[in-house]
Design a protein around this nucleic acid. Sequence first.
DNA 1: ATTATTTTTTGATATAGGTCAAAAAACGAA
DNA 2: TTCGTTTTTTGACCTATATCAAAAAATAAT
Lengths: 192, 192
Amino acid sequence: MVESNELKDILCLYNRHIEQGLIEKTTPLFNYVDFKKGDIIVSNKGICKTCFFLSAGFTRTYSLDGTTEKTLWFGEKGDLLTSFQSLYNGTQGYEIIVALTECKTLAIDMQVFKGLIKTYPEIAEVYIKIVELGYLYWERRFLIQSRLNAEERYREWMSRAAHVSLHISLGVLAEYLNIDQATLSRIRAKKT
Amino acid sequence: MVESNELKDILCLYNRHIEQGLIEKTTPLFNYVDFKKGDIIVSNKGICKTCFFLSAGFTRTYSLDGTTEKTLWFGEKGDLLTSFQSLYNGTQGYEIIVALTECKTLAIDMQVFKGLIKTYPEIAEVYIKIVELGYLYWERRFLIQSRLNAEERYREWMSRAAHVSLHISLGVLAEYLNIDQATLSRIRAKKT
DNA sequence: ATTATTTTTTGATATAGGTCAAAAAACGAA
DNA sequence: TTCGTTTTTTGACCTATATCAAAAAATAAT
């Protein structure tokens, strides 16, 4: 039985003006689903049928480019874990989401969630905000990738997300920042 | 007096199931605004107060990084021209949008447009689709930038957007693709 | 047409960061 | 604690692409 307050905390990250009645009404549609470190939360096999709001823990989302994996983003509290491909188009996704730590989530069936978006403007606002933030995330990531050199990218990351670094290896971070692992090791060794 | 069919054509790019009544009702909120080649459509001075749906022509959106400009995207028929910063947060934007050719637009006041999004779920769907497409655009652009080398980026672009190239100089394309102009010139000189 | 201006090409050179491979260190399991 | 595995560091070398600068070509202006 999901605590409505827990749902509220998360939805309010995206829409502060969401009324209690709606929270109460939608809470029963969610379930707690927990994951252990290393568990796959979303796979790239088939259409993703469930959305997970991460309420505790850290995740890593990656795609497989042939045999090499490419880390796309790291999830933390409040993030929506799902294949956006599946969510947008209802087609098969390519992302794999894995738990970097113990993870607690509030899970909802994707179709039910889409229904909520259509039915309740307040939930639509939540969804809009999520997509807007995603837009800004990728735009920003592009700008960082194309304007900053390897060392600057690393420092920018550390200044913003050092807490995520605690849960990942150098190799994964290097892959995320698009820096060769050996190069990143050398950058990290430098003082200042 | 905007033709409702012209508005319909554009909105239907984003939501095919939009009913005629709603089109009729919203058409009067739009105005034709045309631009000549070189005109600034959206500036980075102050909060952007108008949204433009591009109905004909091509545009270039760039930001100023100190003194050097950085091309972010090219607009074509159907695209929404606005500062997304202003649209999302109501804060001042940093994008400058300029007409590469003669441009015809359907313009609407930003606040009015935001009102429509809140009021009509069908318009909310239009907006959601626009942001989703933007999300995918930037994600894709990031992946291209970080996974493909200069020549591959150029070829990928040519295979997809050669028609836009007709309206821009080599320098602007180089800047867009994050390739030095001299390098791009050499790539272009190669056969196949 | 002729000149001026902008854009593109070409050549020579420099460098950030990738690649390969081995050593060292850290981590985990028995 | 010890052995095996994974991760990180270090060294030598290489390559894609940037940079600088001048020539050539294209475009616009008088």
